[in-house]
Design a protein around this nucleic acid. Structure first.
Lengths: 138, 138
DNA sequence: TTTTTTCACTTGCAATTTGCAAGTAATTGG
DNA sequence: CCAATTACTTGCAAATTGCAAGTGAAAAAA
């Protein structure tokens, strides 16, 4: 069981103790926006995460109660990772990252998604949280 | 001039290339919520950032156009760091970190602030963005 | 039934990044 | 002039990362 050290009692600092690195939120992005749920799927993302880093981050996320790990329904040799409510609650954060990145950095975003997020943000946040919950049930 | 490498064209990944580490957003937090603007003030935060890391992150933030550096009005030996609009636009992100950290981790938050953020979030985001702009003008 | 492939990691190691302590150089206050 | 302040820089040990290769269990192929 991974133990994280907390630098202070500040909620921002503590949130960053858990989520503040270059890889963790990409795993959550893949779960929320790409519906990914297995080790192999995470490895295929464009950013090419190293296998040991992925294994480490999944273990941290599990020990922090952000996702759960269970044997896959189809294969005994495969695991399925699902978001908990604590994980689903990172959706607003991820959406703010999309908006900031799209506005201020040279990136490629689906224009429909961007319009949706820029228009009715609260509704979009709820929609993607609900979608994430449904995937976690499947 | 610091050069950051972009792992992919995804806005989330690119935002994390810039902001995704344990220290950068704490500097922005100190500017937005504590009104800090100098090297010495940043060093005094509860998390005790190392001096070389602070100098490095300030240089990255400046080169990324998130903040500007200028000689202080009162002393020639002092610098004042101010948020640009790109920096002000991280306020929604920082507020989501407060909300997630306060809800899911053991932290200490001002209950008035928390109530404000949980109640009228959009209004609170606008208020703190405006405050951050005013501090950047001062 | 044996063999091969797939999947989910683990291991080893070099390279980078971090954290700590100490040092420096330019003001500024007295 | 001299001590203190401010904003860094430097050196170095320790921790973290990234890459390549290896492992072991289960599933598919022969």
């Amino acid at each position: 069981m991974k133990v994280l050290k907390q630098r202070s009692t500040c909620p921002i600092s503590t949130a960053l103790d858990v989520l503040g690195d270059k890889w963790t939120l990409l795993i959550l992005r893949d779960m929320v926006f790409a519906g990914k749920s297995t080790y192999g799927q995470f490895l295929q993302s464009a950013e090419k995460m190293a296998t040991n880093i992925l294994a480490d981050r999944l273990a941290v996320l599990e020990s922090q109660g952000i996702l759960t790990k269970a044997v896959a329904a189809d294969k005994k040799s495969k695991f399925t990772y699902r978001l908990t409510e604590k994980g689903v609650d990172t959706v607003p954060l991820i959406i703010e990252l999309v908006l900031w990145g799209a506005k201020h950095c040279p990136t490629i975003v689906d224009s429909g998604l961007l319009a949706e997020l820029q228009g009715e943000k609260d509704a979009a946040v709820e929609k993607y949280k609900q979608l994430a919950r449904e995937m976690a049930r499947a």
